[in-house]
Structures are given as C-alpha cells and as structure tokens.
C-alpha cells in the first residue's frame, strides 16, 4: 500500500448468500483515497455504497480482495483490533444519527474520548470545541429526544470529529433532513475537512450532497461506473 493513501481497496468483492442464490454486492472494486479528500460513493439503492463503506470502516470483511485502512489490512483484523482501528482513526455518521438515547448531547460527543481513555479535563475541552464547530454549545444538557433531526445529525458530526479521526465515513447523512438542514450540515463538514484535513467519504444518492463532493465515484451493481474529480460547492 502506498504510504500517502489512507484507504486503498484491491479487487474488493463482497458476496451475500441469499438461500440458494448469491448477491454480489461489490464486484472487484479497486479504489484509493488520500488524506483530506471529500469524496462520495454515489449510486442507486443496492449498488454497494454502504457495503463498501462498512468494509472500509472495518465493520465488515470482504469475501475476496483486500482493503487497507490506515495501513491495516481490514480482512485480517481481529474483532479487537478492528474496534481499536475504528476508535482511533475512523468517525462514523449514520443516516439515522444513532445517538445514544439516555445520554445528553455532551455525553454522546464525549463517548469516543471515554473509550480512548482521554482525561476528564481534556475531554471537556475537546467536547466543547466540537460542539462549537457544529453550533450546539448551548445544548450540552439536552437529550437526543429533545433535538430536531438537523441538531441530532450535528451532534453525530461532533461525535465523529471530536477525536480528530483521519477518516470520517458518512452513510446517507442527509437522508432524514430537510434541504436547509442538509446544507448546514454539509457546510459544517466542508469546513471541518478544510480546517482539520479530515478525509470524508460519503455514501449518498442525494443531489444536495453530490454538489459538495470534490470526488464522485459512481457505483452500479457493485462496480465502479465512474470515478470523477470535480470542484465541490463550499
């Protein structure tokens, strides 16, 4: 693997057994992502976007082929090492926000730092900073149930960036948001990408997201259909 690459896949294939049939979710995908990219996997439902994102995020393993993330070969990682890779280097943003319902906004954002063993003083500083980035510093004591969809997704972004990961994987981050909230969220992510140099990899079929991408990879039936560089909206 090239040292300047954060993510690289080679002939990545994922097949799901479906009874007597097989579903080929990814078919020989070979891609590479460098530090600071703002890229998206685009395509219709079932094209393999989320599957690829899950493998890159070490949440799943390929049937064949290889995926390197931060120098680690994902398919060879134990559960424990995969968990550590995610904890140290990868932030996740989900379509359904996936905030921990019994925690406050502060506690949700603090969670990855707790697992990392960051000191209480440092945690407070970093959580406050992350919440300021997403303009939610005044909602630290709120519970997820008290937040709007846009606010919830901003908390999820703060949770993803608080540990300053090298990579943030966002799976349909705007699917549950209205246009205004979607643009706010995307604007925040563009700023974070530029300020912190974090690599963002999206899975989306939302045109609003596509406008902001600087690299658009179109998947179709588990294959790369197009891989194009573009000037994203800022």
């Amino acid at each position: 693997m090239n040292d300047s690459l954060l993510i690289q896949t080679k002939n990545l294939t994922k097949i799901y057994p479906m009874g007597r049939h097989k579903l080929v979710a990814l078919d020989n995908i070979s891609l590479a992502f460098k530090k600071g990219e703002f890229a998206g996997l685009v395509g219709p439902s079932g094209s393999g976007k989320t599957t690829l994102l899950n493998i890159v995020g070490s949440l799943d393993i390929p049937t064949s082929g290889s995926a390197w993330v931060m120098g680690e070969r994902v398919e060879h990682l134990s559960h424990q090492k995969a968990a550590r890779l995610r904890n140290n280097h990868i932030g996740f943003i989900f379509q359904t926000f996936n905030l921990l319902p019994v925690y406050t906004v502060f506690e949700n954002v603090e969670f990855p730092l707790l697992i990392l063993g960051v000191s209480a003083k440092e945690r407070k500083l970093r959580v406050t900073e992350a919440l300021e980035w997403v303009h939610l510093a005044d909602r630290v004591h709120s519970k997820p149930a008290q937040l709007s969809g846009g606010e919830s997704q901003r908390v999820a972004i703060a949770r993803a960036v608080v540990k300053r990961p090298a990579i943030i994987l966002a799976d349909e981050p705007t699917a549950n948001l209205d246009a205004d909230n979607s643009h706010q969220i995307l604007h925040t992510m563009v700023n974070l990408n530029q300020e912190l140099g974090t690599t963002f990899l999206f899975s989306t079929h939302d045109d609003k997201v596509i406008q902001y991408l600087r690299r658009k990879i179109t998947l179709f039936d588990g294959r790369v259909d197009k891989d194009e560089e573009k000037s994203g909206k800022e």
Binding site: G57, Q80, A83, F94
Partner: peptide, 15 residues
C-alpha cells in the same frame, strides 16, 4: 442498534 453504534464507535465485543 445502540450496540452496533457502540461497536462502530470503537467498543470491543468483550467491552
């Protein structure tokens, strides 16, 4: 789903 989130955030199965 929360368990999946915990794992995605870096908790091991044992934890």
């Amino acid at each position: 789903r929360e368990m999946g989130t915990l794992m995605a955030l870096g908790m091991t199965r044992r934890e």
